[in-house]
């Protein structure tokens, strides 16, 4: 059964079928909201509100796009409204200072997975929110450039350019040895 079939089930009155969408997409939705809001509690509140909005407006979902694209767009809009944050900086603005040169104690030491994850997370938090979000959408769930454009409201070429810059910025600011 695909997502469209499940949407039809919910629309025909089977509310419990909506639980599938909650369980499948909650982690990524919270991650997206966290990238924008910057704090976990707010992120979960935003996602909870987004699920409610999605349920109320499920009749407006068009099966031409994926459910995840449609739903993440709701999450994105809700998170941006909630945090009133400026998502997209202009060219030349990064909001970052030069990357601190903090190499690992031993270049040969094997990183614990958790330490690596923390460093990646810290670097993402230092990036402009829009860049961190683009990297999250592109690499975590392999969303295409077209889907990212639908979620964020940016045009295709804008997404490509920003993604390229975000990748570069991320690599430059990741502590030495992690990449």
């Amino acid at each position: 059964m695909n997502d469209n079939d499940r949407v039809l089930q919910v629309l025909s009155g089977n509310t419990s079928a909506f639980a599938y969408f909650v369980e499948t997409y909650q982690d990524m939705a919270v991650t997206i909201a966290f990238r924008i809001c910057g704090n976990r509690q707010d992120a979960e509140d935003v996602v909870q509100e987004s699920y409610l909005k999605a349920f109320r407006n499920l009749h407006s979902f068009r099966s031409e796009s994926k459910f995840s694209t449609w739903f993440y767009r709701i999450v994105y809009n809700a998170a941006v409204t909630h945090s009133c944050s400026k998502m997209w900086l202009r060219e030349g603005q990064t909001g970052l200072s030069a990357a601190a040169d903090t190499p690992l104690p031993s270049p040969d030491a094997e990183l614990e997975r958790r330490e690596q994850a923390q460093m990646v997370e810290r670097t993402l938090q230092e990036l402009p929110k829009g860049d961190a979000l683009l990297l999250t959408l592109y690499y975590m769930e392999d969303h295409s450039v077209k889907e990212i454009a639908q979620i964020t409201g940016l045009n295709l070429s804008n997404v490509k350019v920003r993604l390229f810059r975000a990748r570069k910025l991320f690599k430059e600011h990741l502590p030495a040895g992690v990449y």
């Binding site: 509310t15 419990s16 909506f18 639980a19 909650v22 369980e23 909650q26 982690d27 990524m28 939705a29 919270v30 991650t31 966290f34 976990r40 992120a43 979960e44 996602v47 909870q48 699920y51 409610l52 349920f55 109320r56 997975r113 690596q116 994850a117 990646v120 997370e121 993402l124 990297l135 999250t136 690499y139 975590m140 392999d142 990748r167 991320f170 990741l174 992690v178 990449y179």
Partner: peptide, 29 residues
């Protein structure tokens, strides 16, 4: 490489999150 790195930072929703959401939806319905 980017994919592997970034996937380590994916968050997980709280344990009772899906229950809370479904409760709210069932109540509203």
């Amino acid at each position: 490489k980017m994919r592997r790195l970034l996937r380590t930072s994916k968050l997980r929703a709280s344990e009772n999150f899906s229950w809370r959401v479904m409760q709210q939806i069932e109540t509203e319905k």
